[in-house]
Each structure stands twice: as C-alpha cells, then as structure tokens.
Design a protein around this nucleic acid. Sequence first.
DNA 1: TACAATAATGTTAGCGCTAACATTATTGTA
DNA 2: TACAATAATGTTAGCGCTAACATTATTGTA
Lengths: 337, 337
Amino acid sequence: MKKNSPTLSDVALKAGVSMMTVSRVINNKGKVKPETREHVLKIAAEVGYRPNYIARSLATKRSTTIGLVVPDITNPFFSEIAKGVEDEAYRLGYNVFLCNFDENPEREFDVLTSLAEKQVDGIVLCSSRQNNKQLYHSLGLFKHVVLINRQLPAPSHTIQSLILDDFNGAKLAVEHLLSHKRKRIVLLSGPKQSHSAFQKEKGYLAALKKHNIAHDPEQIKHCSPTMICGKDTMSMLLKNDPTIDAVLAFNDLLAIGAMLACQEFGKIIPQELEIIGFDDIPLSKLIIPGITTLTYPKKEIGSIAMKIIYQMMDQDISLDFPKTFAPQFIFRQSSPK
Amino acid sequence: MKKNSPTLSDVALKAGVSMMTVSRVINNKGKVKPETREHVLKIAAEVGYRPNYIARSLATKRSTTIGLVVPDITNPFFSEIAKGVEDEAYRLGYNVFLCNFDENPEREFDVLTSLAEKQVDGIVLCSSRQNNKQLYHSLGLFKHVVLINRQLPAPSHTIQSLILDDFNGAKLAVEHLLSHKRKRIVLLSGPKQSHSAFQKEKGYLAALKKHNIAHDPEQIKHCSPTMICGKDTMSMLLKNDPTIDAVLAFNDLLAIGAMLACQEFGKIIPQELEIIGFDDIPLSKLIIPGITTLTYPKKEIGSIAMKIIYQMMDQDISLDFPKTFAPQFIFRQSSPK
DNA sequence: TACAATAATGTTAGCGCTAACATTATTGTA
DNA sequence: TACAATAATGTTAGCGCTAACATTATTGTA
C-alpha cells in the first residue's frame, strides 16, 4: 500500500514550525531565519516533499500554466512555434497545454473552453479559424491572449497580436525578380482559405501594379502546399507557356516541386528561371541548387508570445516586443542576390 | 472593473438549491429531479458558469490532465505521436501538457518534476535519456506511466511500455541490402544514449553476423538526428571510402542528409548506393528519389498510449492493447523492392 | 393508512495550499 | 536600560469544489 505523498503540513509537523514558515521556505518568499530555512529544507528533502501546484493555484489564483492552440502540431511551421513557446515556458517555470483543432472551428471552441476551465493564465492561439464574433466570445474566457497571425478589429489590453508580414514579403520577392529583368513571374499560391496565401497574392499583385506590369490571371495557381502539387502544377504551366522565367511559391515545398519540374523541362536554374519560396525549411539549404526563400523567426515568435503573456501577468508595464515580423530574405542559388 | 467569474455557490444561491445539487447537475452524477436539473442549467447558463477544474481536481484528486514528454517536438516523429496523444485526449476529455527536453537528461528530470507538481494523472514519456536508476526515481512521482521506446528491467503495474521493434527493423533492412549484393553497408546511427539507436545497432550487427560478414567499426557513426549531421557525416565517410554502397540510417532525416551528400559526390542512387531510413516522415515520399524506410503507426501509438493511461485510471482491468509494434517496410526508389 | 424503500436534496468537513493579519523575538540606537 | 524598528514566526480564514454522510420528500405495496 503506497501512502500519500507528504504535504506541507507533514513537513511543518516534523520540523516543528508552522505551515506558513514551511511555505515561506519552499517559495523563497518573506523573511525566514537561515537556520530555520536549512532545517525545513532538510526535513522536506527527507520526507520527499513536493509542492502541490493544484492547491497552490487555488489559493493564489495563478496556475503557472498556459494553453497553446494550433491547427496541427505535425505542420513544421507550428511545431517550431510550439518549440519556441515551450522553451521559453520552461525558462519561466510555466507548463504548456498543447491543443490541436484540425482546422475545425467547433473543436477550436471546445479546446478553448477546456483550457479556460483548467484556469490557464493565458493562451497563445495560432491561425484561428473562428469568425470575429465567435473569437471575441471565446477569448473573453481568458485573462491574457496572444494571437499569432490573426488580428481583431477592436484591440484590447488583454489581447495582443503577432503578425507575419506576408504582403510585404511577397511584394519584396516579386520586386527582386523584376530587378533581375524577369518578365513572366508565376505565383504558385497556397490553399484558397489561407489568410497567408491571400496576403501573398495581394503583395504579388501590388508589386506588379507598382511596376506597371499587366497581370495575367493564368499566372496565379492555387495548390495544396506539397512538393508533388508544386511539381505537377509547374509542369502544366511550362507546357502551356515555356517563356515563364520566374516563380514565387507559397512555401518551400511548392518551390522545390517547381524546381523538379523545371529540371525535367531542361530549364536551367537560375539562368533561365528563378525560384523563390517561403519558410526556409531545412531541405531548402541542403538541396542543390539551394532555394531562395523568405522566412520568419518561428521559434523566436513562439518565445515572444510566451514572454508577452508572462509580462502581462506580472506587471502592467508597456510591452516593447516586436508585434509585426518582417520576413527575412535568404538568398541562395535559385535566385541569387 | 471586471468581476470574478461566477462560482458554483453563486449558481446555487440564485437557483435556490444547495451547492451539492448544482454540483450533481454540472457533473451529471447522482439523482436530481429533471425539473431541478433544467432550472439549475438555466441559471448556470444565465450567469455564464464555468466549472473550475483546479478546485475540482483538489477535491477529487484527479486533474484530467496528462503530461507528454518528448526530446523535441519539431522532430516529425514526435509531432505525429503528439498528434495521436492529443486527439485521443480530446476525445476522452483530457488536456495534455507538452514538454521538450532537448536530449538533455537534466531538463528531462526538471520537466518530469514540474509535471508531478502539477498533479498530472499520468505521463507519456518518449525516448527517455535518463539511466535506469534516474528513471525509476523520476517515474516514482507518477501514478501512471506509459513509456514509448524504453523498457525497464523490473516491470510494474503502474508503468507500461510500448516498444518499437527496431532490432528486427534494422536486421530486416540490412538483409534487404545484402540481398541486393551490397558489400559495404554503413550505419548512420543516432545519439549514443538512445535506446532506439542501440537496438538498431544490434539489429545491424546481427544481420551481418548471420551472413558471416566481417564488421568494420568505421562503418558505424553516431549522429544527432538531423539532416545536416547526416549530410556532413556521409560526406566524411565517402571521402575516406568511396566504395561504400549502402546506408542504413537511424531516421529519415539522416537518410536524406546522406542522400544529399551522395548527390554532391555524384553517387547515383540507387544504382551505386542504396539508402534506407526509419520513420517515413512526409518528406521521404516527396523527395526524389523517394526514401525507402521502415515505419511505425505513430499516431496510433500516441492514441494507444493515451488510452492505456485512461484505462489505468479508471479501472484495474487487464489491458489488451498491442505493446510491441513491428516496423512496416515502405519501398521507394532509394532501395527498391 | 402505514411504512419500508427509494428518490431527492442538504450539511459538514476537507482537499493542500497562501493571503492577510497578528504576535513574538531580536536588533540597534539614544 | 528602554524602546522603537524590524525580523521572524504564527493564526485564521478561504480559494471553489466534492466525498461522505444526513435528512427530507415521494413512491409503492400490503
């Protein structure tokens, strides 16, 4: 028969002091005589005392716990963010609840509710698929919220947003290609419902317009963000129009797929055709030729999200973290500087 | 000034019943007159009552919370397992704490301690890097444990193991390569402390021995399980010995890294050199040539781990889930059937 | 109608902590 | 030595629930 783990009261009894004195020692808070501290710590170690955070949370109304809500943790983009959040949480003494919602707004609502019931101190919500009204309602359950890649019309001091500047990323990429005298630039766009794909399309069109270049609707194709879709779509495009001389892709997987199609067509990269992707996945720097890409500091974004929640908790100081992340241009052989 | 969220006591007061009656309604437990239930639910909805699971946990000594501890969530192998665990947890009404330990036994110990303090009902621990003594000590903190890919000498009714049969996987792979008349088969092994790497090495050696092939210690190299390490290590090996004609890699990331090194060396795959990896990460089927690999049903393993903890919690019935998982051979171009 | 069985509801105490206030011990200074 | 200031420790009540037992209401049967 395994007996229950020892409580604060057990330690107090054995050490011959009050529970509050033990509490002060354990939490390193308030004044305690050094000899008393030593003695209490010794007894605590002897009986193997471990504080019960459930009880502590109930008393302090703080759980040292946050929720991280993502569409799908198997997507490398989100697992990098999750890593950043968790690393920072570990540093700060927090624990992270992970929830997937599988692009399903109902499940998103469910998991948010469950996190609120678990009394998390805050949440980091990535790429929410709820509409604004639903979202306001859900977020009302929380004391502190950081949204990643989603903005609400009415800002609030309990809700912060971290925004990825895909519009300017795409614009920058297209202008880079134009500066290399590229004439027919194709956009391999992402899923139609994607906020990020929408921003990149806007940036692509804005760059063309700025340079007075007519836009041919045939030059934008929507793809699922996979290598095979990039390859197939690019093959089709090249068949119809061999004069294509540049590609901007929604992500690196599409870019690599497009590159494979070009190689089959005998298009020499980058001399005859340049390619730019997004995300900087590990493969992009290892493959030959290397893929030029625009990327965001994903781990850092996760880490900042956690830091913001922590600071919101602890003090009302004005936060001076970056809120908008400019994409970083990484030049490799597929579209050199 | 935002007022505190309503408590069970607020609902009881407003509905004119005792707190226990409200508790019974909320938890759907015990006998309550249908009219009373309706009335209580109406009041609860009116005031926007949400149960406080911290308080409930303290009273019931159950947190409906588990911990998932992995070396690195950005490794696709673990993010798939995490997905399986979380999906099942969602179905069962549980929440999952995610912790990374970065191959660092000290951090592993830290996060286990923090999970115990948060009173999780159980943990799923993947690829522990602690030695047996440390591990026993850490696991003693928990009521229920599922280990993935780690076995302890003394089994226990609170600790279950799900084992991936890496020994036979590696043996199978090497025999496949031998059947293709490969003579110099390199093993790109994983981290030295990894149980899985150890099993794969044993399988590799067993296959060589079975076919009376001398083993050259230079043909086993330990790598961190990343693409870049695979590439660098393979480059070095090829420089020293261009006659290498096959590679078995600890995982697909290493396998892909090795493939990139081969391409730089002008080695034609699979004609001049065959490659087999482990895990079947998504990239392995997209890249060209596709990577032949041995894989396990990762989401299912995660889901079973969660189910086992749930069943351990709820009843002491004997569990009849599979405990050992045979690898599945997936043939692609890098080492065809 | 009488009363045992059961349904429905209520009361008490406690889960393991800490906030807030209260008391006692120790220090330093005039 | 006297006493205010501060250090050190203690006491009380409560965080928001539920387990366990207690009581009251309602049912069915002889």
